[in-house]
Design a protein around this nucleic acid. Structure first.
Lengths: 193, 193
DNA sequence: GAAAAACATTGAACAAGTTCAACAAACGCA
DNA sequence: TGCGTTTGTTGAACTTGTTCAATGTTTTTC
């Protein structure tokens, strides 16, 4: 049983050692090289993944070819296009490895098995989805009410470890601004110090 | 058993008539006059509500006093501050009735009872939270990639019934723009026709 | 270790959206 | 019916952020 996954689960629900092991056995490990894709637009998301090592970006490409990053997923995060995975329909998202990564993946069929046999797993994913939803609501509010400058500083404060692992272009795509403008913000902030 | 609630549930999971009735019995009806609050900032969200009639707005007020609308909840929608309700902590949202409204409310205690006794209810709320999360992701992407003009037109197309029930100020707060700018957009669109 | 590709910076012109102020229209209510 | 409050409109000046193009720097890749 993987420790990172065990702790991730234990943070939300309590499961017996036996159930944890059975749930764990429904996953299989998989490696993703940097720049390879966990999921591409048009594909049906066949697996949900738990990141053991590495870093992914989950993003959308709009009609003009501009990328919007929904979130970054380093170690201890889950990756999937929920809509595509749940409803078995083509995804409109990309999930790309930004570093060589290790992931525990579970298929749709095995996840349904888990839901069927372990009510606590159903609860686990209800609670996790609620938390990510609350976080997204907060981000929505921030995007509507704060300036890019402030959002950048908040991002640095919230994800200090990611700062060194991401290019400024990626951060700009997360903040919803052009990378040139982010460069100007950085310049301005540097001068202020 | 209320028909609207029955259909809302049946859209996501299947429950026996008996279970539906037992779940339904955990709710109590409540009336909200126009301009009264289902929830105010600082309060702990004690109930989750299912709107039978009327219309609510769920919004946040930022440091400058500017309101950001997270969503509007007409008939057949659920209202709550998930974060406050789940974790019993003070809310930072307001939920206000924009029309005289009727709501079925369920307390935190009764909802826990439902989760405990009916696994299908746990599944129901997992699925509903997933759907609202997917919808919010889409809105996030739209806000990052589309112009206010386009977002306004999308809003009208998506919620044609709400258009007549909301002031332009409310719609502007949902779109994340000033009401003056919305007025200019409307003027421009009217001229184009 | 060199060439190519991706990334970061800067400036100038531009577009999108805000703010403030003034006024008109509609609504709620006594 | 009328009076006060909220809502909608418009214009001018302003701020925030974009686009494009040029230049230098760092990373990849073979």
């Amino acid at each position: 049983m993987n420790q990172l996954l065990r702790n991730n689960i234990a943070r939300h629900v309590s499961l017996s050692e036996d159930q944890l092991q059975q749930f764990h056995d429904l996953f299989e490990p998989r490696l993703f090289k940097k720049k390879s894709y966990f999921l591409s637009e048009g594909q049906i998301c066949a697996h949900e993944g738990f990141v053991l090592k590495g870093l992914f970006r989950v993003y959308h490409v709009d009609a003009n070819g501009v990328e919007q990053v929904l979130y970054f997923a380093p170690e201890d995060w889950w990756i999937a296009d929920i809509d595509s995975f749940s409803n078995q329909k083509p995804s409109n998202l990309f999930i790309e490895a930004l570093e060589d990564s290790e992931v525990l993946v579970i298929s749709r069929k095995n996840k349904d098995l888990a839901y069927e046999h372990f009510p606590a797993i159903e609860k686990l994913f209800r609670i996790m989805t609620q938390k990510t939803h609350v976080a997204l609501q907060r981000r929505m509010i921030d995007n509507l009410s704060k300036t890019a400058d402030k959002r950048y500083q908040d991002f640095l404060a919230k994800y200090p470890d990611l700062y060194n692992r991401l290019s400024n272009r990626q951060i700009a795509a997360y903040l919803g601004i052009s990378h040139e403008f982010l460069s100007k913000i950085r310049n301005k902030l540097a001068k202020e110090k």
